[in-house]
Design a protein around this nucleic acid. Structure first.
Length: 666
RNA sequence: GCCGGCGUAGCUCAGGGGUAGAGCGAGGGUCUCAUAAUCCCUAGGUCGUGAGUUCGAGUCUCACCGCCGGCACCA
């Protein structure tokens, strides 16, 4: 009963992110990849639908909510709203933000459960595990007698009745399915892992709990709620119709993008659930790798979690998109560093694409009054630009092929070969010299047409990765149809119409100073991390505090707060006792600061403006009630208040009169 | 412990039997349309260690060292 559609559909998903914390760069990566595919598929003529969302149930949310003094629903909603807002702000919202607390999702889960049960794949059984009575939760991986890792109290061995999904019956069916669909699990290495896991035998899966309250109720089975995977995974289906999935014709999903750590749930449990319910299976599961920061996995305990907002505030979302897709081979782990990010930005975006647009459009403006000149193809293509058009046309085919395989880094590499080719072409042809001789007017026209046309092709191809910037160049090239609506299949050399009025050349990617930009990102990161991870942190706000530098990209206006908010911040006069550089960090100083009743260790981003020895003995303003945080592996217990100059350099706040150490500010 | 992967120029990585590659960074040069951008030249790296197969090995085999992943939560 699917409605007839003109275009083939393409349905893809990101994971539904757990609302127990805020997004970091890894989540951002997943979503950016999905958004890029979404945009690319649209340019290939697909009707695309993308789902992202929030996984909200479970003990962890329950407990975090309790700590925050809120109901799980209230707590989870606040976090979910922030996730959604982040994706909106980053321009990667998808088409549906499904929440596992949505009524339609509850309905779908209960419906799927019934189908599985009716088909005989659900049974009652007993789950036995180590249970912490104090925390009201099972302790995974604990043996009898082990202590609870959270509260240290001994755990008890508890057995509860719950429902099991007969996963063991699907071992052979899954193996057959994998064999029949060799591309189902990507990349290859993950596929092999899954295969060996399934080959090793499958145990039945406990899918309900009676000890958890915060979950979807099992209909007619009062204390039971669904447990983890027989909840979140089903969101992919809830988002596109649930029980009536057939009406929208979007199911099965064409692609689930996941992180490598959750591949098994997607590649084993999920297809088994669907088989049990007699529903179509998704076509592909793609597991990407992790972003390693300084070669380490990101984690809160290491204090090296990278958040998207500071980067976006300092550089913009597009450089981040470009970096993640260009630098990291999709499917493999990749290293993330601010240094590489800014380097990529300057060399590829500012000096590469941005500069090519700038020089090309400037010359067209100057020599042809802002009109695309008319080329004289035959002769010039022979003598001046052998193979230019062919090169671009071949690159076009190649890039689409690479995008199809999600080989983003190779696709971008190929696009940038076009940029380099045109750059070289311009250098060889010397249009500025041609412009001086009236008899070279025709050649000049051809050269600039060629440059503009090469730029146009590269711009169109880069659009899925750089949606806004390429649209700007597109407009500057005088194109009126939105670039997002261009079909790549119909793109080819020579479509640029002579006489088209070009727009004013404007810098798309202004070059930035590397160390200053990194300093700014780190400062903002520091600011943001100091705020607790509670909803009140309002990650949407650019830190408007003393060290928030003028950011070219975003710089959200600071919102008004009441006196009661301000009163939460405790500031005191401190005196620097010792100061030294933090190794491996350009701008961080590790300080011991006397704040009256104690000496605090504080790591501050002051090294660009102050020498350690100049700070010793100096009185500073210290925010004393910030949550501790590690910077470059060094714990920081507070924050030094400073003004921030436009170039990012800090200037310490101080007093004109003598003040005693430890005095409070208000 | 079992299974798998990786270790190549300062950095990130490609190459999988026959005279060591790319991009970035760095050094030198060129041009001047352009965002001090572009373009050209330069990198002499025991291709983790040792042994073996071969006329010939980053490239195949074995052993060893180091790092990482899966087998057990997390983008």
């Amino acid at each position: 009963m699917s409605t007839p559609r003109a275009k083939p559909k393409y349905y893809l998903t990101t994971p539904l992110y757990y609302t127990n914390g805020m997004p970091h760069i890894g989540h951002t990566y997943s979503t950016i990849v999905a958004d890029t595919i979404r945009r690319y598929k649209r340019m290939r003529g697909f009707e695309v639908f993308m789902t992202t969302g929030a996984d909200e149930h479970g003990v962890n949310v329950e407990r975090s909510a309790q700590k925050a003094g809120k109901s799980p629903q209230e707590f989870s909603t606040e976090i979910a709203v922030q996730w959604k807002r982040l994706w909106d702000d980053l321009g990667v919202p998808g088409d549906e933000f499904i929440r596992t607390t949505d009524e339609k999702h509850h309905r779908t889960v209960q419906w799927l459960f019934k189908r599985c049960r009716d088909n005989g794949f659900i049974e009652k059984g007993h789950y036995t595990g180590q249970y912490c009575v104090h925390d009201n939760a099972y302790v995974v991986d604990a043996g009898p007698g082990d202590a609870c890792p959270d509260c240290g109290r001994p755990t008890e061995t508890v057995t509860e009745e719950n429902y099991f999904f007969k996963l063991s019956e699907f071992q052979q069916k899954l193996l057959d399915f994998y064999a029949a669909n060799p591309d189902f699990i990507q990349p290859e290495s993950r596929r092999n892992e899954v295969l060996s896991f399934v080959n090793g035998g499958l145990k039945n899966l406990s899918i309900t709990r009676t000890t958890i309250r915060w979950g979807i109720p099992v209909p007619g089975e009062a204390p039971h709620v669904f447990y983890v995977w027989f909840d979140a995974l089903i969101g992919y289906l809830s988002a596109v119709g649930g029980p009536s999935y057939d009406e929208r014709g979007l199911w099965p999903a064409d692609l689930h993008i996941v992180g490598k750590e959750i591949i098994r749930f997607h590649a084993v449990y999920w297809p088994a659930f669907l088989m049990a319910a007699d529903l179509p299976l998704p076509r592909q599961i793609w597991a990407h790798g992790w972003l390693l920061f300084d070669s380490e996995k990101m984690s809160k305990s290491r204090g090296n979690v990278v958040r998207p907002r500071p980067i976006v505030n300092a550089l913009g979302i597009e450089p981040l998109r470009y970096y993640l897709l260009r630098e990291i081979v999709f499917g493999q782990d990749g290293s993330f560093s601010y240094d590489a990010l800014v380097t990529r930005y300057n060399s590829d975006l500012a000096n590469g694409l941005g500069n090519l647009a700038s020089r090309t459009l400037t010359m067209i403006e100057r020599y042809f009054g802002g009109e695309i000149p008319k080329p004289t193809p035959a002769r010039d293509r022979e003598s001046d630009a052998p193979g230019t058009a062919d090169f671009a046309n071949e690159a076009l085919t190649k890039v689409m092929h690479l995008y199809d395989r999600f080989s983003f880094s190779l696709a971008l590499e190929s696009i940038w070969e076009i940029v380099a080719m045109i750059d070289k072409y311009i250098t060889v042809q010397k249009p500025w010299a041609l412009a001086e001789k009236p008899e070279d007017r025709e050649r000049l026209a051809t050269v600039l047409y060629t440059a503009a046309e090469g730029l146009r092709i590269a711009t169109a191809l880069a659009h899925p990765v750089l949606p806004q910037a390429t649209q700007k160049i597109w407009v500057q090239l005088g194109q009126t149809e939105p670039l997002a609506g261009i079909q790549l299949d119909f793109l080819s050399w020579g479509q640029l119409k002579p006489g088209t009025k070009t727009g004013k050349p404007e810098g798309i990617f202004p070059r930035v100073d590397k160390s200053e930009t990194i300093a700014r990102i780190e400062t903002m990161e520091q600011e943001q991390s100091k705020a607790p991870e509670a909803p009140a942190a309002a990650a949407a706000n650019t830190p408007s505090g003393p060290v928030a530098a003028a950011a070219p990209a975003a710089a959200a206006p600071s919102s008004k707060i009441g006196i009661e908010d301000f009163a939460k911040v405790e500031m005191r006069v401190g005196q620097v006792k010792t100061a030294e550089r933090v190794t491996g960090a350009d701008r961080l100083l590790q300080l011991q600061v006397d704040i009256g009743d104690e000496v605090r260790q504080i790591v501050a981003g002051l090294a660009l403006a102050y020498k350690p020895e100049d700070l010793v003995g100096r009185k500073v303003v210290v925010v004393t009630n910030l949550a501790p945080r590690k910077l470059r592996g060094v714990e920081s217990n507070g924050m030094i208040v400073a003004a921030s100059l436009p170039d990012g350099a800090p200037v310490l706040a101080g007093f004109l009169e003598e003040v005693p150490v430890g005095a409070k500010l208000k």
